[in-house]
Protein backbone atom coordinates (compact mmCIF):
# COMPACT_ATOMS: atom_id res chain seq x y z
CA UNK A 1 0.00 0.00 0.00
CA UNK A 2 1.23 3.43 -0.80
CA UNK A 3 2.12 5.19 2.35
CA UNK A 4 1.95 8.58 0.77
CA UNK A 5 -1.81 8.14 0.45
CA UNK A 6 -3.38 10.46 2.92
CA UNK A 7 -4.58 8.83 6.08
CA UNK A 8 -8.30 8.89 6.68
CA UNK A 9 -8.82 11.74 9.03
CA UNK A 10 -10.74 10.94 12.15
CA UNK A 11 -13.63 13.30 12.29
CA UNK A 12 -14.19 14.64 15.69
CA UNK A 13 -17.97 14.88 16.09
CA UNK A 14 -17.67 17.78 18.49
CA UNK A 15 -15.67 19.77 15.98
CA UNK A 16 -17.82 21.31 13.32
CA UNK A 17 -16.54 20.72 9.85
CA UNK A 18 -17.30 23.74 7.76
CA UNK A 19 -18.10 21.93 4.54
CA UNK A 20 -20.26 19.21 6.10
CA UNK A 21 -22.38 21.49 8.17
CA UNK A 22 -22.74 23.79 5.20
CA UNK A 23 -23.90 20.92 2.99
CA UNK A 24 -26.23 19.66 5.67
CA UNK A 25 -27.73 23.08 6.14
CA UNK A 26 -28.18 23.81 2.46
CA UNK A 27 -29.63 20.38 1.70
CA UNK A 28 -32.08 20.71 4.59
CA UNK A 29 -33.10 24.14 3.42
CA UNK A 30 -33.45 22.98 -0.17
CA UNK A 31 -35.55 20.01 0.93
CA UNK A 32 -37.77 22.19 3.07
CA UNK A 33 -38.14 24.70 0.29
CA UNK A 34 -39.06 22.13 -2.34
CA UNK A 35 -41.51 20.32 -0.05
CA UNK A 36 -43.17 23.53 1.02
CA UNK A 37 -43.47 24.59 -2.61
CA UNK A 38 -45.17 21.31 -3.44
CA UNK A 39 -47.36 21.64 -0.35
CA UNK A 40 -48.36 25.16 -1.25
CA UNK A 41 -49.18 24.08 -4.79
CA UNK A 42 -51.36 21.23 -3.47
CA UNK A 43 -53.10 23.56 -1.03
CA UNK A 44 -53.77 26.08 -3.78
CA UNK A 45 -55.09 23.29 -5.99
CA UNK A 46 -57.58 22.21 -3.32
CA UNK A 47 -58.95 25.65 -2.58
CA UNK A 48 -61.86 26.75 -4.72
CA UNK A 49 -61.58 28.91 -7.77
CA UNK A 50 -62.88 32.40 -7.29
CA UNK A 51 -65.87 33.06 -9.45
CA UNK A 52 -66.31 36.77 -9.82
CA UNK A 53 -69.45 38.07 -11.33
CA UNK A 54 -68.68 40.86 -13.73
CA UNK A 55 -72.12 42.32 -13.50
CA UNK A 56 -74.75 41.94 -10.85
CA UNK A 57 -77.74 39.79 -11.68
CA UNK A 58 -80.55 42.17 -12.52
CA UNK A 59 -84.15 41.17 -12.09
CA UNK A 60 -86.66 43.29 -13.95
CA UNK A 61 -90.08 43.74 -12.35
CA UNK A 62 -93.29 45.49 -13.33
CA UNK A 63 -94.10 49.18 -13.14
CA UNK A 64 -94.16 50.77 -9.67
CA UNK A 65 -97.91 51.34 -9.74
CA UNK A 66 -98.45 47.58 -9.94
CA UNK A 67 -97.23 47.37 -6.33
CA UNK A 68 -99.41 49.60 -4.13
CA UNK A 69 -98.20 50.28 -0.58
CA UNK A 70 -98.58 47.20 1.61
CA UNK A 71 -97.71 44.61 -1.02
CA UNK A 72 -95.08 41.96 -0.33
CA UNK A 73 -93.85 40.01 -3.36
CA UNK A 74 -91.55 36.99 -3.40
CA UNK A 75 -88.91 37.10 -6.15
CA UNK A 76 -86.13 34.85 -7.36
CA UNK A 77 -87.79 31.65 -6.21
CA UNK A 78 -88.33 33.08 -2.75
CA UNK A 79 -84.80 34.34 -2.15
CA UNK A 80 -85.72 38.04 -2.31
CA UNK A 81 -88.81 39.88 -1.13
CA UNK A 82 -89.97 43.21 -2.56
CA UNK A 83 -91.95 45.36 -0.15
CA UNK A 84 -93.89 48.46 -0.97
CA UNK A 85 -94.58 50.99 1.81
CA UNK A 86 -95.70 54.58 2.10
CA UNK A 87 -92.03 55.58 2.26
CA UNK A 88 -91.16 53.81 -0.97
CA UNK A 89 -89.93 50.44 -2.18
CA UNK A 90 -87.27 48.22 -0.75
CA UNK A 91 -86.05 44.68 -1.37
CA UNK A 92 -84.66 42.40 1.35
CA UNK A 93 -82.64 39.24 0.91
CA UNK A 94 -84.43 36.19 2.28
CA UNK A 95 -81.34 34.25 3.29
CA UNK A 96 -81.11 33.91 7.07
CA UNK A 97 -78.09 35.72 8.49
CA UNK A 98 -77.69 32.99 11.10
CA UNK A 99 -76.87 29.89 9.06
CA UNK A 100 -78.15 30.48 5.56
CA UNK A 101 -81.58 28.83 5.44
CA UNK A 102 -84.20 30.40 3.20
CA UNK A 103 -86.73 32.36 5.25
CA UNK A 104 -90.46 31.84 4.97
CA UNK A 105 -92.62 34.97 4.77
CA UNK A 106 -95.27 35.53 7.43
CA UNK A 107 -98.05 38.12 7.48
CA UNK A 108 -95.53 40.48 9.01
CA UNK A 109 -91.90 39.56 8.90
CA UNK A 110 -90.03 36.40 8.04
CA UNK A 111 -89.36 33.24 9.99
CA UNK A 112 -86.50 30.78 9.68
CA UNK A 113 -87.75 27.22 9.96
CA UNK A 114 -84.30 25.85 10.70
CA UNK A 115 -83.53 27.52 14.04
CA UNK A 116 -86.49 29.80 14.65
CA UNK A 117 -85.01 33.24 13.95
CA UNK A 118 -87.64 35.89 13.34
CA UNK A 119 -87.11 39.06 11.29
CA UNK A 120 -89.54 41.91 10.87
CA UNK A 121 -90.50 43.33 7.48
CA UNK A 122 -87.54 45.74 7.53
CA UNK A 123 -85.21 42.79 8.07
CA UNK A 124 -84.18 43.46 11.68
CA UNK A 125 -83.52 40.34 13.75
CA UNK A 126 -86.25 40.29 16.42
CA UNK A 127 -85.68 36.97 18.18
CA UNK A 128 -83.91 33.66 17.77
CA UNK A 129 -80.21 33.09 17.19
CA UNK A 130 -79.74 35.51 14.26
CA UNK A 131 -77.87 38.67 15.19
CA UNK A 132 -77.36 40.63 11.98
CA UNK A 133 -80.22 42.19 10.00
CA UNK A 134 -81.15 40.99 6.54
CA UNK A 135 -79.39 42.85 3.76
CA UNK A 136 -81.27 45.34 1.62
CA UNK A 137 -80.72 45.14 -2.11
CA UNK A 138 -80.39 47.95 -4.60
CA UNK A 139 -83.54 48.90 -6.48
CA UNK A 140 -83.70 51.03 -9.58
CA UNK A 141 -85.89 52.06 -12.45
CA UNK A 142 -85.30 51.45 -16.16
CA UNK A 143 -85.97 54.29 -18.59
CA UNK A 144 -89.16 52.51 -19.68
CA UNK A 145 -90.52 52.82 -16.15
CA UNK A 146 -90.01 49.25 -15.00
CA UNK A 147 -88.49 48.55 -11.59
CA UNK A 148 -85.42 46.36 -11.27
CA UNK A 149 -83.58 44.79 -8.38
CA UNK A 150 -79.83 44.15 -8.39
CA UNK A 151 -79.65 40.77 -6.68
CA UNK A 152 -75.99 41.01 -5.58
CA UNK A 153 -75.71 44.67 -4.63
CA UNK A 154 -76.41 45.58 -1.04
CA UNK A 155 -77.45 49.03 0.08
CA UNK A 156 -77.67 50.51 3.56
CA UNK A 157 -80.69 49.52 5.60
CA UNK A 158 -83.32 52.23 5.33
CA UNK A 159 -82.56 53.29 1.74
CA UNK A 160 -86.04 53.43 0.30
CA UNK A 161 -86.51 53.74 -3.42
CA UNK A 162 -89.08 56.24 -4.57
CA UNK A 163 -90.33 55.77 -8.09
Amino acid sequence: MNKSCSKPTIVDPSRKSGRRSFLRLTSTLAGLLSFSTIGAAIARFCLPLKTRQLSSRILTLGRPREYPPGTKVQLQEGRITLLSTEDGFFAVSNTCTHLGCVLQPKKTGFICTCHGSYFNDEGSAMRGPAQRPLSWLRLGCWPNGHLYVACDEEVNTGTYFKA
Binding site: E77, G78, R79, C101, V102, Q104, T113, C114
Partner: peptide, 9 residues
Protein backbone atom coordinates in the same frame (compact mmCIF):
# COMPACT_ATOMS: atom_id res chain seq x y z
CA UNK B 1 -85.53 21.78 -2.44
CA UNK B 2 -83.15 24.76 -2.35
CA UNK B 3 -86.09 27.14 -1.93
CA UNK B 4 -87.94 25.69 1.06
CA UNK B 5 -86.35 23.76 3.93
CA UNK B 6 -88.45 21.14 5.69
CA UNK B 7 -90.27 22.42 8.72
CA UNK B 8 -88.90 21.42 11.18
CA UNK B 9 -85.68 20.04 9.76
Amino acid sequence: NPQIPDNPI
